[in-house]
Simulated assay, not measured.
Amino acid sequence: MIMHFQYNPLFENTNIPGWNISFYFKKQRYTGIYHQTGNLEWTSNPPAEEDLTALTSQIHELMLYHVYE
């Protein structure tokens, strides 16, 4: 489960899409960039392969809820 999810715009002009994200998962902090296309670019060590699909889906849902609605 993702905990302490945070996001901030990448650019001062908030009309330009892109967000810095950070969260905790399994007691490990992860950071990355969420692009407008839904692609994730990890700026920390990426999560384990077995967790990657589930985490990507959860992050996408959180971003849809917080940013696009």
Results as ranks from 00 to 15, higher is better:
Met1Asp: 14
Ile2Thr: 11
Ile2Lys: 09
Met3Gln: 11
His4Ala: 09
Phe5Glu: 04
Phe5Trp: 08
Phe5Val: 10
Gln6Ala: 13
Gln6Trp: 08
Gln6Pro: 12
Gln6Val: 13
Tyr7Gln: 07
Pro9Gln: 15
Leu10Met: 14
Phe11Gly: 07
Glu12Asp: 14
Glu12Ala: 15
Asn13Pro: 11
Thr14Met: 15
Asn15Gln: 05
Pro17Phe: 07
Pro17Leu: 11
Gly18Trp: 06
Gly18Val: 07
Gly18Ile: 10
Trp19Phe: 15
Asn20Gly: 02
Ile21Thr: 14
Ser22His: 02
Ser22Cys: 02
Ser22Ala: 03
Phe23Gly: 06
Phe23His: 05
Phe23Arg: 03
Lys26Trp: 01
Lys27Asn: 13
Gln28Ile: 10
Gln28Val: 12
Arg29Trp: 09
Tyr30His: 08
Thr31Glu: 13
Gly32Ile: 10
Gly32Lys: 07
His35Ile: 01
Gln36Leu: 10
Gln36Asn: 11
Thr37Val: 12
Thr37Gln: 09
Gly38Thr: 12
Gly38Pro: 11
Gly38Lys: 11
Gly38Tyr: 12
Asn39Cys: 04
Asn39Ile: 08
Leu40Ser: 00
Leu40Asp: 01
Trp42Tyr: 05
Trp42Val: 05
Thr43Gly: 04
Ser44Gly: 02
Asn45Lys: 12
Asn45Glu: 11
Pro46Phe: 01
Pro47Asn: 13
Ala48Trp: 03
Glu49Lys: 01
Glu50Asp: 07
Glu50Leu: 04
Glu50His: 11
Asp51Pro: 05
Leu52Val: 14
Leu52Glu: 15
Thr56Ser: 04
Thr56Val: 00
Ser57His: 02
Ser57Gly: 01
Gln58Leu: 05
Gln58Arg: 02
Ile59Gln: 00
Ile59Thr: 01
Glu61Asp: 14
Glu61His: 13
Leu62Lys: 05
Leu62Arg: 08
Met63Leu: 12
Leu64His: 08
Leu64Asn: 07
Leu64Arg: 09
Val67Leu: 15
Val67Gln: 15
Tyr68Trp: 04
